[in-house]
Design a protein around this nucleic acid. Structure first.
Lengths: 212, 212, 212, 212
DNA sequence: AATGAATGAGAATTCATTCAT
DNA sequence: GATGAATGAATTCTCATTCAT
């Protein structure tokens, strides 16, 4: 205990994380241009100038926010792709349920909203999200479909488009909630949607030639 | 001929439209805060000062853009709700195809992206889109479903959630294209998706108790 | 008179000149970094923002100031090089007198001081002054010397170093005045110096009455 | 040994010197305002905060730098004034040679440049340099001239202006090198100039072989 | 109706200076 | 004595908005 590093030294390491947390909120609320460094600093409990000890520019803070949010999703996708491998009828409800849960928790929706809004201004971030998150996720779903097609569990059709059929409703509901959360009283419940949509899709994609 | 409005009045009306057109492009490219009146004026072929002859503030231009984009969709939804009323299996492909077409043409995706991004900054616009476009559209779809359920064509389930099952994939694909258009080479084709998804959903939502 | 352009339009053209004038004073007083745009704007009778209608950055204003001051000197050097061509004993007093006069009037000293101080920060400006003003001026003097040597009027020696012998005292006195103008009471009089130094350079300081 | 100052005290003294050395470089490279304490600290091998253990403000560091550079020159001038007292024709080459040498070594040019640039912002430093260095140096030269005049070695004329005739070329060449060192390829060689100029000043530039 | 020069409030960024450790 | 994280005042630059012409 004697050589415990002093408190502020440990804080130092944590600080950039705290800034990213605060910044995510502010960017989500106001968009990139609308976000003020003053506000980010305030929420992170620092002075404006101190931000520059951790990040070079506002852009870098934004990039850090978006990049940071990539990691856990990227990992979740990878883990899911490995873990899941049962019959398609078991797989789909699990995946949709997990998507709904992941969206319900965490700030994924806020980040997605921001990436959508700023994709023109930050093509590099769009690229990262495309290459590291959205692309692989769709690829994973398409892979499941293709394998299921190989086993005769799923009928003919483009696996990538099937991936949209699988994920689209949950994604749309997520954005609906994110966009109209403050003004709508009829927000769809994600877990329920996931469950019902799993049923839709399973019956709809089932190979009609397979014996029922 | 006597009560013909003077030329400049028609011109005046035309001008706002030109401004709104130009502004839509600029807002879509840069978001609200990132859009510069200079640029809007330039694209509309006016001086910056002249914008203020037609709109009071930048916000008003933005509101006009978003409101303007509401109208045709609102009308399309209303017309569709009236026009369509065949058996569910006929209805769904038609609707999805029309959605895909409407999205493919026009700037709906750009406006949607902007509304998503700025919903926190312009709750009134979020409200308008919710009340006048998205809400009714979902309501219409849910209505079709409910009627089909009444006729025994569709199985049990929440009609509003079924609406997400119907529209979600096309919406997601639209945003995928809008967001990753510049960085992705694997953009889903909307009409094909619409067609394939119609098939998924029809078989998936079909009432299993109905005689095939 | 009827088609006289409106007053403010003529002003517009003049504005950037006014800004450069004001800026020269401020840069000369404070150096580049110490000069505040507020102050420049105030002295030019404009708002801070208006500066940016004429110049892109503070650096550009500075460059414009220094470049602008090049032109007349450059021209003076060129004119002098052409005009002067008598015997060396006539040439030297004329040139030194003209140098003293040019320095006495105008803001050459202020600009020179600034170029000296900022040469490291603005190597391009140092280059311009070297290539367009100082270099040619020294070259011109060296040319006169060389020609005079050819005619046997001047003894052996490096013409370029002779140029320093010719101009150095006047230049040093100029900087002495510029630097110590506020604190010194013993400022050298430039025309007198020019005249006396011309004699030195032509005949040396040796007492002509002393037996050789 | 008992009254040896404790090590840290000597260190302390040494430290200020190191700081001043480092600061001289940084001020010479960037000017006062452009110099950053971070950079000075880095070059001195200290933390930024530690600078404040030795100096109260950035200004104080600058003053220390400029004052420090005064001392040796001041001493050199005094020593020279005493040491030199032969016939004028011997004196002049010695003095100019020594000037050239002093300038060639050391950082006198860098400090002079800085003093010129900041004389308006730091009138007290201009005063010090005027009173302690430049004034006495010119006074010394003028004194030599006056004495030589008294002995009939030098003709009539203002001794102070003669001082400019003597020193000016070397000073000008020093500033030429300092200013255009990075951009010019035609830098005058100081010792050669000193030698040639000594001859000029003593005999004039006239061709001794020409018939008088 | 139209222009475009001008304004000024506001934002990001820098950096000398302070202070807890 | 020494550190380096933190501060906040100051400065450059931007841009929606105004207004004389």
């Amino acid at each position: 205990m004697v050589d415990d590093p002093p408190k502020w030294r440990r804080r130092k390491t944590a600080r950039s994380g705290e800034i990213i947390d605060a910044a995510l909120d502010v960017f989500a609320d106001n968009g990139f241009a609308g976000a003020k460094l003053d506000e980010i600093a305030r929420r992170a409990g620092l002075s404006k100038g101190a931000l520059y000890l951790y990040f070079e520019t506002k852009e870098e803070i934004f990039r850090a926010v978006v990049r940071t949010a990539v990691a856990p999703n990227l990992e979740a996708v990878r883990a899911a792709a490995e873990a899941f491998d049962g019959p398609f009828v078991r797989l789909v409800p699990m995946i949709l349920d997990r998507m709904a849960r992941m969206i319900g928790t965490g700030r994924l929706p806020a980040v997605v909203k921001t990436v959508i809004g700023e994709s023109r201004n930050f093509p590099d971030l769009a690229q990262i999200w495309h290459d590291d998150v959205v692309g692989p996720a769709i690829g994973m779903l398409a892979g499941f479909v293709a394998r299921a097609q190989g086993r005769g569990e799923v009928g003919a059709g483009d696996p990538r488009l099937y991936a949209f059929s699988l994920a689209g409703p949950v994604v749309m509901a997520m954005l609906f909630r994110e966009t109209f959360g403050a003004v709508g009283t009829d927000l769809p419940d994600l877990p329920t949607l996931a469950q019902q949509h799993a049923s839709v899709v399973l019956h709809g994609m089932a190979n009609p030639k397979a014996a029922p």
